[in-house]
């Protein structure tokens, strides 16, 4: 593992809300080509962790370092979300956040925004450069839709898509920002087993074909165990374990955390 390039490095990340410590000095690394996973019971602080990394919250303590290949290291703490995305780190949301009154294609086109540059004035006179760029955005976006299997829905409103398709659209939209690291927040939530299996394949395909590293939050252990390595486990804001799927499976702390939850349910 050591020879692989380290992309994301989080050191001692802590996030307080008033008196509540939602994330307590969590460290984590994602390397090139990996599908890493962050798992844990509900309320463990996984989404808060994501929000800190992607700039929606400014963490109380700790460092979030991004090491883009061939570029200088950047500290992400306190950067605005759009800057984080520009640096090559894209995300999806746990509770789907699409743009409901835009078409499926337009949703993906929004992702291309930070990689294109037509300004106001040139958009008004609609110069040739703008028209070409615009067409390129459309083609690129459509290709992404085809990749996630939504090509035929391109001109539908995104609010009219079925649930599973909306999740895949979120992935396509995030990929449109040309990330080298993709953060997926419970991508399989609310999906049936068949949809989950398809999602498995999609995630692997993205990892292999597009050479994008992936960090995903999951609740569903099965999905995680199949595709990801390494796995980090959080409970009550703290990291309680990390390692390969096999190591995690055998870790008594993890078993306790999950069993404890199951008796609750």
């Amino acid at each position: 593992m050591a020879d692989k390039h380290k992309l994301l490095e989080v050191k001692g990340l802590t996030m307080d809300f008033g008196g509540l410590r939602a994330v307590d000095s969590v460290s984590l690394e994602v390397h090139e080509g990996e599908i890493a996973a962050l798992i844990g019971p509900n309320g463990a602080g996984k989404t808060t962790f994501f929000n800190c990394v992607t700039g929606i919250y400014t963490p109380t303590k700790g460092d979030i370092l991004l090491h883009p290949k061939g570029l200088a290291t950047r500290r992400l703490n306190g950067l605005k979300p759009n800057k984080v995305t520009e640096m090559g780190l894209a995300r999806t949301f746990q509770n789907i956040r699409l743009f409901p009154d835009m078409t499926v294609l337009e949703n993906v086109m929004i992702g291309r925004h930070c990689r294109t540059k037509s300004g106001i004035f040139r958009s008004i006179i609609r110069s040739r450069g703008v028209r070409e760029e615009e067409q390129q955005i459309v083609e690129d976006s459509y290709q992404l839709l085809v990749k996630v299997g939504l090509g035929e829905f391109a001109n539908e409103f995104s609010k009219n898509l079925p649930y599973g398709a909306q999740r895949r659209l979120e992935i396509a939209r995030a990929m449109a920002t040309d990330p080298f690291l993709l953060l997926l927040d419970e991508p399989a939530a609310g999906m049936n087993p068949q949809e989950t299996a398809e999602l498995d394949q999609l995630i692997c395909k993205i990892s292999e074909e597009d050479r994008i590293a992936i960090l995903l939050i999951e609740h569903d252990m099965k999905l995680v165990m199949n595709i990801s390595n390494p796995i980090y486990v959080m409970e009550y804001g703290k990291k309680i374990a990390e390692g390969s799927p096999q190591e995690i499976k055998d870790n008594p702390k993890v078993i306790e955390a999950y069993l404890g939850e199951e008796t609750d349910a």
Binding site: I56, A90, L98, F99, E106, M109, I110, S123, V130
Partner: peptide, 23 residues
């Protein structure tokens, strides 16, 4: 245009909009 799409996205969902790299 590209700007107009960003406006509409902003109207639809601010957080998703900035997370997609829009200033």
């Amino acid at each position: 245009s590209r700007i107009g799409r960003a406006w509409i996205a902003l109207r639809e969902d601010e957080i998703a909009c900035v997370a997609m790299g829009i200033d």
